[in-house]
Design a protein around this nucleic acid. Sequence first.
DNA 1: CGAATAGTGATCGTATACGATTTTGTACTT
DNA 2: AAGTACAAAATCGTATACGATCACTATTCG
Lengths: 224, 224
Amino acid sequence: MAKTVADISTTPAGSKAEQAYRAVKARIVEGTYTPGYRLVLGTIAKDLGFSVVPVREAIRRLEAEGLVTFERNVGATVAGIDPTEYLYTMQTLSIVEGAATALSAPLIDPAAIARARAVNEEMRECLDHFDPVRFTRLNQDFHSVLFEHCPNPHILDLVHRGWNRLASLRSSTFRFVPGRARDSVDEHENLLQLIETGADADTIEKAARRHRATTLDAYLAHTR
Amino acid sequence: MAKTVADISTTPAGSKAEQAYRAVKARIVEGTYTPGYRLVLGTIAKDLGFSVVPVREAIRRLEAEGLVTFERNVGATVAGIDPTEYLYTMQTLSIVEGAATALSAPLIDPAAIARARAVNEEMRECLDHFDPVRFTRLNQDFHSVLFEHCPNPHILDLVHRGWNRLASLRSSTFRFVPGRARDSVDEHENLLQLIETGADADTIEKAARRHRATTLDAYLAHTR
DNA sequence: CGAATAGTGATCGTATACGATTTTGTACTT
DNA sequence: AAGTACAAAATCGTATACGATCACTATTCG
């Protein structure tokens, strides 16, 4: 008998570093840890019941993703809604989403188009019931359908990194520019039609870029 | 007297995790650790005189950058010259370098143009003396001059990440496609002229993209 | 009353030790 | 001879402990 009963309870799924990463990230996205919140290694470790080493690794990963800032002997703080940082992130997302859409477009089959359109219609319903949280989630679903056959995983990774950075400003579309969301849904439909009709890559890329850039412009005009 | 003499000897510059990161990365770039080389935490720690914890952090950072692959309870290995991975990286670089060039172009002053041109002429000399290592370094210098006033640090960061990924295939231009290097120098000059004459952003972006994409195409044609 | 300073506390950084998991080598059986 | 089961070694993952560094505060001096 080599294995003991304890093996049943052990959860070899993810390492504790991974669990800590997900846990802290979730708390940031959900808004439990608001921007400016100080993340103390010891405290988080005690809360999660882990040691500080895996928690430290989790924090460093979050730092690399831009969700927290880290300072030696001071600790980590949840990254704030710096307007400049927002601009950088949105501009970068505009570029990588544009590329991802253009690269994926030839590989999107009619069934996927139909699914994306269904998601978009759900988003339209969210407008009436004013459900910003669900709207944001569906927005990601929409683009996920478009990108599911993206031939370049690196670019897809960059898209996800951008989404992560925006995670702490959840449903920012609604919060900052109320009228923007409806335009967004229309732009989605426009994008789908371009893909359906087999528009050339450059046209699709520019449309996808503009989709994100317009949101940024609206934000800039709104806060100016 | 609060401070002791020991303070003089302490080097608060970088943490050991940082030192380990730089050391291992340097060994990979220099070719001391060739692709496929197994990086064992304990061994590296003993070599550097550090403990395993900071070394582990360094390895995880290198993993995030794509320079090594990591497997649980197995260890890390230096990432190989996977043709597919090369394609992904070059395609992504094409996009982010294109964007970076287009964004930077309006901010490049004549003095910077002159410096970039000087670097490019040095590259031309390298062709005659066949100095691939210096060529590769100058190539990065050339683009660094162009990007030094890039208004979006995030995009610049993506460019550097791409360069890092290519680091293990140092001077790949010479190695894979001998005739390609001379074209590259000509394309640089062409790019400078576009910037000088104040071409529109879209033209500059496409030229910059094509510069990288052509290298990729040459590689694909060469290995097919 | 303000500013410089010493002391205290908090937090990170790393070393060491131990446990879990995988791989590898070996002996035995078919 | 080949395949399998078992044991031993190697490696990563994490907990704990301690040291180093920095921020904060109370105190003292000008």
